[in-house]
Design a binder for these strands. Structure first.
Ligand code: SF4
Ligand code: SF4
Lengths: 146, 146
DNA sequence: TAAATTTAGGACCTTAAATATCTTGTATGC
DNA sequence: GCATACAAGATATTTAAGGTCCTAAATTTA
């Protein structure tokens, strides 16, 4: 399963919320506009993030999204896999029945190892680390909201 | 770009040829049957492998594929990228214009780093290492060819 | 409490890519 | 010359991504 654009959008959304601060309500419109995400598509993505417990969604006028967790308690892997499911590089590393006897195959372990390596790398990137540096996603100034 | 089934087939094909030995002619039919690859699809894949200089294709009666290089001079990355193009985990690590200023974004480097890590891992797996171990792809016995 | 705002959730659409298969042509060996 | 085996381009088929539309529901505010 490949890392989709939806996963990328989810990360952008979380980065934006993290930089606004835990507990701060931000409208979907603002996030969509600032992080350059199609608004309706963001709705879908946010629903999954909410179901997974990363954000809270408030409906109605003055609604929007709120970050629930501490940035240091969230990592890229969690967010990505919330959207696209468990990462696997190919069918060999995912489907047990793609081949007759994967246990005997030297290539198979390469895929499973590489997949683990990738997952570990992403797991090591927490959102507090991310937010300490600069970002190409600009944060809209308070009071200048439209 | 994700690692496709076609790439997996290409690897299976190369593993089969490596185990038969450099310079040994093997019919497409045999490879397709033993490595469980659709014969016509294998033809397409083999053409790309041939164009990239990994195998030679012999036409006509008693035609087939022949491994050109030493197994230790070939690695998984080469084969995979011959089929699917340069590996990149997502659009962030591939498209320069997906975001306004990638240089400023802390997440962007995660993707490029993770992509490099993956490519390095695959590059380190040469076919001589692979063929030293067992494989789920069984090799058809000489004389018992059908 | 009616109206305005904002998201929810499901249905639907569009495009692109993977995964082949078909058909016709060409090279080779006997 | 004829059977065999691959070449190469055209043509499905299937799957998924990426996104839009529409009606309902929740919340605020006048
Ligand atoms: S990696 Fe090996 S076991 Fe896995 S599908 Fe490929 S050939 Fe089969
Ligand atoms: S990783 Fe950063 S620079 Fe790259 S596309 Fe995502 S937000 Fe933009």
């Amino acid at each position: 399963m490949k890392i989709t654009r939806a996963a990328e959008y989810a990360i952008r959304c979380m980065v934006y919320l993290v930089r606004k601060g835990k507990g701060t309500l931000v409208s979907r419109r603002e996030i969509a506009h600032q992080a350059e995400i199609p608004a309706q598509f963001l709705a879908k993505i946010a629903q999954e993030l909410a179901r997974a417990g990363f954000i809270e969604i408030r409906q109605g006028a003055k609604g929007g999204f709120v970050l629930i967790n501490e940035p240091k308690e969230m990592n890229l892997l969690e967010i990505v896999e919330t959207i696209i499911g468990e990462i696997s590089l190919n069918e060999s590393s995912a489907l047990l029945d793609f081949c007759s006897d994967p246990n005997q195959c030297p290539v198979h372990s390469v895929w499973t190892d590489a997949t683990s390596q990738l997952r570990d790398t992403l797991q090591g990137v927490t959102f507090d680390k991310i937010s300490k540096k600069g970002s190409c996603i600009s944060i809209e100034k308070p009071k200048s909201d439209k």
